[in-house]
Design a protein around this nucleic acid. Sequence first.
DNA 1: ATGCCTCTAAAGTAGAGA
Length: 267
Amino acid sequence: MRLATWNVNSVKARLPRLLDWLAATEPDVLCLQETKCPAEAFPAAEVGELGYAAAAHGDGRWNGVAVLSRVGLDEVTLSFPGEPGFGELAGVGAARPEARAIGATCGGLRVWSLYAPNGRAVDSPHFAYKLEWFAALRDALAAELPSGPLVACGDYNVAPTDADVWDPALFVGATHVTPAERDALAALRALGLHDVVPTPMKGPHPFTYWDYRAGMFHQNKGMRIDLVYASGDVSGRVRSAYVDREARKGKGPSDHAPIVVDLDPIS
DNA sequence: ATGCCTCTAAAGTAGAGA
């Protein structure tokens, strides 16, 4: 099975590239983040022509996640149980969860496509929301893990180590690298989830995100913030994993590159 | 070379991303 995850930064703006990439890469399952479109506007017919079923969760302008599969798409779950919304923590009343999580069972594998809150700044209510969201995610995945093989893919908006940012000194005091955020990842690993670290196509760092500005991609000033967290029975089947930095090149790319993971069949 | 930001809409500028 070939599994992939990609923050596309608008599925509408990226649709020609997405379709070309699907045809060339042929993943069995693809997790998408930042689709930035309502579920009813998701280009299900277009991906359907390539043989993919689609499940989408959307808010409209912001966020948005989806799962595409050509090996079955069952038990679709929009948001995870206990997922917080932003407004509750900001004290402005109860809020629905944002469109940051969608789960589906694809060919016997439980798959989550996740888009973690950015956090903005450590003194922002958005940062507290980010940590609360991760704590709730931990509980939701803990509840599902006994049921079978599981993979939680997506844009975690956390760089797991200092080696996962191009210049750690520039990130002192910033989000994405704080001990609190890294502890949230450690709590997920403590459940038995394994960080499937992909191989970079170029250079020593498996970065998955490069800012659009100032030629960051061309200088390989990136971050590894897109992650594949796999249960033990899945991580043991990983034959290979890579960051497809080719998809970050050229005109009109997303600012993130896809991660592609090849799994051996269940023996 | 891979090339200096881009997306959406409550749009003609602003907010968000990280």
